[in-house]
Design a binder for these strands. Sequence first.
DNA 1: CCCGGCCTCCCCCGCACGGGGGAGCAGGTC
DNA 2: GACCTGCTCCCCCGTGCGGGGGAGGCCGGG
Lengths: 220, 220
Amino acid sequence: MPVRVLLVDDEPLVRAGLRAVLEAQPDIEVVGEAADGAAVIPLVRQVRPDVVAMDVRMPLLDGIEATRALLRTVADPPRILVVTTFENDEYVYEALRAGADGFLLKRARPAEIVHAVRLIAEGESLLFPASVRQLAAEYGDGGGNRAARALLERARLTEREGEVLRLMARGLSNAEIAARLVVGTETVKSHVSAVLAKLGARDRTQAVITAYESGFVAPG
Amino acid sequence: MPVRVLLVDDEPLVRAGLRAVLEAQPDIEVVGEAADGAAVIPLVRQVRPDVVAMDVRMPLLDGIEATRALLRTVADPPRILVVTTFENDEYVYEALRAGADGFLLKRARPAEIVHAVRLIAEGESLLFPASVRQLAAEYGDGGGNRAARALLERARLTEREGEVLRLMARGLSNAEIAARLVVGTETVKSHVSAVLAKLGARDRTQAVITAYESGFVAPG
DNA sequence: CCCGGCCTCCCCCGCACGGGGGAGCAGGTC
DNA sequence: GACCTGCTCCCCCGTGCGGGGGAGGCCGGG
């Protein structure tokens, strides 16, 4: 169900950045990384991404050639989001002509990047960065607690249950949570049980792990 | 005690990448970010970083001018690590002449980046990328479980205790851990108790939280 | 109006968890 | 030899945790 993304860029730093930005979203999953265009095709066959975030300028095989090769040789190819540093990069237009579905500037804000991936995954095209900014502006916040809200919605946690999960993820016992929320411990137990059931967790430790893994709470 | 790092780069993606790579280390802390050279000086005064990781090519005020300004106007200035895309960038040598302490290629592997920051923080200089690679080669692995080792050393967890903590952080019960490690449940309980004591955790949930917060295990 | 969701609280019950001991054994160090 | 550390396993014991029920009050929508 989550959007599966493959990152292709020769700079590990850019890959790490994209990964950090995208993995913070519970509905986006980074399923692989490649450092150059040549490695893309076998990797796509293997991990079957929905979206490939591809740099244009790469050694061995650049983004344009990789895009062409991908669309030519892979059945049911993923959608391709071209990533570039420069606003007016003739390479980008080459890539788009080769079949890429949109492009994204590396200096885009995280919320824009996330939005671009989601849109591309949904079949939309992003041919002009202006449209990216415009659409991303709808979100307003920097993506801070969007992940949290998404988890609430996906697991259909109620507000109270989300509150309890957050306190669990800070290491509080049921009694401490009860004191904090000014309710009885039995009430907390009810909420905790509901959280465990909805998250498919066996105990509070597993629930907290899920909270971290989903980005519902973030380390640091 | 941790190395305090300020990130200066016009691309949010690169900042996010550096942050992801550096924050994974328990002894490195990213204390701030700036998008251009003009914002650096007040920020340095405010957050007092040990190291500034600075892009050379930036709008408004580039890395060279920012370096000069920093060394000229700030008392007890931080050490400056210049970050660049290109191997032979005359701007870099300008920056080094301006007083920067070393430079780093953006395409460096995470382990190299981390190592560069540590060395710079210790007062070493990194003037040639070859030396970076050479020194980084000592580490061997890609930086993957270095954070884990650091936690082991800091909390003085034994190897076995670290193994148990890792399994706890995957949601396993004592019995499941015992089965996995092919030992008795009583043995696991001993290790778990030792882990809790050394981490200052009251229960396994708090221990797992510490594991996530310290980077001993990473989400995703 | 009544239904359903949410929050609140209650009961009983079993067990895994964690604390506090102790102990044997291998591997090193002094 | 004595000594320490790490790994292994054992005992007892209290309790916090989680499962399975049930129940009342509140509110908003059909």
